[in-house]
Write a protein that binds this DNA or RNA. Structure first.
Lengths: 205, 205
DNA sequence: GTTATGTTACCGAACGGTACGTGTCTTGCT
DNA sequence: AGCAAGACACGTACCGTTCGGTAACATAAC
C-alpha cells in the first residue's frame, strides 16, 4: 500500500503522521467549511482523511458531535484571530477598533475565503435545540461584546449603536462575499466602517 | 376518502382546490425557506403538500428543477416588494432610498422571518455550475443596481460607494438575524443606514 | 498486553426518482 | 341521448443508492 507513517502526500517527509482522530477533525473542518455540513457525508470525510469509518466513530460519537467540535474550534480560532489583531494594534482606541475591521477585510481578501464558518452554519442550522447552535450564538455574542468594549473606549455617545452598526457592515461584507466574491460590495467594508466611526465621533463633539 | 375538490382543510370551503403542481410549489418554497434546501427531502414536500411523488416529478423534472423554480419566484417576489416600496415613497430621492431600507427593516421584524431566501441558499450552494446559482447572482446584482440608481439620484460624490455601503448594512442585518433575531444588531439597521447617507451627503456639500 | 488503527461486512432508514395502474374528465362519433 | 376513446391527473408500489452508524476481527507499534 502506498504511504507510510514517515512520509505521505498529506504530511510530507520527516513529519510524523498525525492521529486518525486529528486527521478526521482537520478534514471535516475543511470540508464543512468549503461545502457545508449537510453536503458532506461521513464517507467523504473518512475517504479524504485517509482513515476508516470506525476510526471516526471511535473519536466522535456521532456526526453531530464532530460538527460541534469543528464549530467550537472555528469559534476559538476566530476569536483568537480577532484578539491578536487588537493586541497588535497598540493602545489607541480608534486603531484597535480599526484593527478588527482590517482583520476581517484581510480575511475576505483571501482567495479561499468562503464566508464566516459560524455564520454559514447558522443558516444551515435553524433548529433551536441543536447543541451546535449554542456554540454559534456564544461565538457571535462574544464578538458583539468585543465590539462594544472597543467602542466604549472611543469618545462616542452611543457605543452600543456604533458597535452594532460596525457589526452589521462586517457581517454584510461576509455575506455578500458568497454572491459577489471579494471584488464586490465587500470592497467598501473598511471605508464604510471608518465613515460610521467618524460620524459617531463627530456627533459626540 | 375525506376531502373533495370544493372543500378541504387546506383551502377552505367554496375555494377550489389548487392543482398538485402548485401545492408542491408553494409547500416547497415554504419548506426550503424555513429549513434549507438540503434539509428538506422530496418525501417531506409531497407529504406536507398532500400529494404524491409522481405528481412532483410530473411538474418538475428533478428536485434541482423545483429548487430553481422556487428561487426564481423568491427573486421575483423580493424584487417586486422593493420596487413597490420605492414607488410608494414618492419622488424625493432620499425618501426613495430610505424606503428600501425601511422595507427591509419591516421584513426583518416579521416573526416568521428567517433571512433572505436568496442569501440563505447562496450559503448552501457554493458550486458555480449550479443553475440555481445564476438566479441568486442575478437577483443580488439587480438589487445592487437598484441601490446604485437610487444613490445616483442623491447629491453625493460617490453613489456606488454609498450604495455598496448600504447594501452591506442591509445584508448584515439579514445575516445577524440568524443568530440574534430581530431584537439584536438588526435594530440598528435604519439608524446606521441613515447615518451613512448623511455622511455622504455632507461630504458632497 | 495494551493501545490505536485498519478491514470487512453489515444494518435500517432516508434519499431522489420511476414504472405502471386507476379514476375522471372531455371529445367525437353514432 | 348514449357511448367508446383518448387525454389528463393522480396514487400504489417499487427501484437502486446513499445516508449515518455498528459489530467482529485482524494487525501493528510500543
Amino acid at each position: 500500500m502506498a504511504g507510510n507513517k514517515e512520509s505521505c502526500v498529506d504530511c510530507g517527509p520527516g513529519e510524523s503522521r498525525k492521529s486518525a482522530a486529528s486527521r478526521v477533525f482537520d478534514t471535516a473542518k475543511d470540508l464543512f467549511y468549503r461545502r457545508g455540513i449537510r453536503a458532506v457525508g461521513v464517507d467523504e470525510i473518512v475517504c479524504e482523511a485517509g482513515v476508516t469509518k470506525p476510526s471516526l466513530y471511535r473519536a466522535f460519537k456521532s456526526k453531530d458531535d464532530l460538527v460541534t467540535a469543528c464549530l467550537t474550534q472555528n469559534a476559538a480560532e476566530g476569536r483568537e484571530g480577532i484578539l491578536a489583531a487588537i493586541a497588535a494594534a497598540g493602545d489607541d482606541p480608534r486603531k484597535r477598533l480599526s484593527a478588527v475591521i482590517d482583520h476581517h477585510a484581510d480575511k475576505i481578501r483571501c482567495p479561499d475565503y468562503r464566508g464566516c464558518p459560524i455564520s454559514n452554519v447558522a443558516v444551515e442550522m435553524p433548529e433551536p435545540g441543536n447543541p451546535g447552535r449554542e456554540v454559534l450564538e456564544q461565538c457571535k455574542t462574544d464578538f458583539r461584546a468585543i465590539m462594544v468594549d472597543l467602542s466604549r473606549d472611543l469618545d462616542v455617545a452611543y457605543p452600543e449603536a456604533l458597535a452594532d452598526g460596525l457589526l452589521l457592515v462586517i457581517e454584510g461584507a461576509i455575506a455578500t462575499h458568497h454572491i459577489f466574491g471579494s471584488q464586490g460590495p465587500a470592497l467598501s467594508l473598511v471605508e464604510t466602517c471608518e465613515s460610521l466611526i467618524d460620524s459617531h465621533m463627530e456627533r459626540a463633539r
